[in-house]
Amino acid sequence: MDASSRRLLAKTRLFTIIVIVSNALGNFFLTRGMKAYAGELSLSPVGYVTAIFSPWVAAGVTLLIIWLLTRMALLGWADLSYVLPVTALGYVASALLGRYFLDERISGQRWAGTLLIAAGTAIVGRTSVRTAR
């Protein structure tokens, strides 16, 4: 592997980590905050805008904006079909946060699904970041 592909790999890994962490924590904060608005939201955007300025939701939205920007940057050099499954790790992290910090009940089947996602993600991470078009 030459220097420039090593650099690309290191940059890809760094952005991938930021994407996963900001997505998981963003979703977690958003859930904490949105529970206060159960049954209050309609099609009108007013309720959503009010919700966005409550502390938990604002923290969640900020992290999700960081997620969005780093993910967009990553898509600038990596394939969508690489980015999508890799960021699926964020889904797994969200399930863990739901179980341990939001007291959600998760069945054995759900945990099995979590492990399959992690395995699939590891396999995709071993394929080349960029394919010729």
């Binding site: 499954p85 699904g113 979590t114 399959l116 996602i117 699939g120 590891a122 396999i123 995709v124």
Partner: peptide
């Protein structure tokens, strides 16, 4: 990998 992820998501 994508198939595994998809199957896992379906289980979840």
């Amino acid at each position: 990998g994508v198939a595994l992820v998809a199957f896992g998501v379906a289980l979840l």
